[in-house]
Simulated assay, not measured.
Amino acid sequence: MDPQHVETIAEKRIREAQERGEFDNLPGAGKPLPSLDRPYREDWWINGLIEREQLDMTGAMNPTMALRKEAHAMDETVRDVAREESVRAIVEDYNRRVKLDRLRPAIGNQMPPIAKVLDVEEVVAVWREHRRYVEAQARLRSEAERRAREQAEAERRAGVWWRRLLRTCRR
């Protein structure tokens, strides 16, 4: 089949799809391409896929860099943990993996990156502070709810008293 004939078939199919309205109301219609302001990169398509699909690329990272990323997010990781022992176990497991990572042989002639060991007591102190804050907020909410219930009950009782008074006056 000759290339001109294939192009004609393709153009015909596009025109028919346009006539059927298959290209109407597409997302981003009438808007500039989002990547026009970025410098050209050969791997633009893979970066676009990662961004669009919100893929977690931690598994594809160098193990040391993944550990560094984990250390950076440690306060957020342990924030909702219920018990101090669990927080300690999480940080100690991280530190164990950092020490194992340091035993890997270096590749190449440059100094390999290293991840830092975290201070367990420091992470626990941040966790405790956050727990105190959360508990204080819970107490304040609980107190506000209790006051609101008391206020509603008082208003209900006052309404009952007025209704009784009105009934008595009507008789």
Rank of each mutant, 00 (worst) to 15 (best):
A71I: 06
L36H: 10
V87W: 14
A10K: 11
E16P: 03
Q4M: 07
L140E: 07
T168R: 10
S142M: 04
I107L: 03
N109V: 04
E155I: 06
A89F: 13
I107T: 03
R170S: 10
P3G: 04
V160S: 02
K12V: 04
E122P: 00
M74D: 07
R96A: 11
G28P: 14
M74R: 06
Q151T: 00
A152V: 10
D24W: 01
D101Q: 05
D43I: 05
T168F: 10
L33M: 09
Q4H: 09
E53Y: 12
M65G: 04
D24P: 02
I114K: 01
N47E: 04
A60L: 15
R104S: 05
Q151D: 00
A29G: 01
W161N: 05
A115I: 04
R156W: 07
A29S: 11
E76I: 08
W162F: 11
G21Q: 07
L67E: 08
A29Y: 06
P27I: 12
A82I: 14
P105M: 05
R132N: 09
V126M: 01
D56W: 01
Q151M: 00
P27W: 03
E11I: 13
D37M: 00
R20I: 05
A115Q: 10
I107S: 05
A138L: 00
G48V: 01
E7S: 13
K116D: 11
E70P: 11
W162V: 09
E145G: 00
A158S: 14
L36V: 14
A29T: 08
R13T: 14
L26N: 01
Y40I: 08
L26K: 06
Q137W: 03
K69F: 04
I9S: 13
W162E: 15
K12Q: 15
P34N: 06
E129I: 02
Q54N: 12
H130C: 06
A136C: 01
A125I: 02
V124F: 15
E76Y: 08
S35I: 03
A152R: 15
R38Y: 07
P27S: 08
E122G: 08
E22C: 10
I46Q: 05
W44R: 09
Q4A: 15
E145D: 03
P32Y: 05
T77A: 09
E121M: 06
I90F: 10
E76V: 12
R15E: 12
H5D: 14
R131K: 15
W45P: 00
E155K: 09
R97W: 03
D80Y: 08
R139A: 02
I50T: 04
W161E: 13
I46Y: 04
S35P: 05
E92M: 09
W45V: 04
R38V: 13
E135R: 13
A17P: 13
T64G: 08
R88S: 09
E153W: 08
M1L: 11
R38W: 10
T58V: 09
R156A: 14
V81S: 13
G108V: 00
V134W: 12
A73D: 12
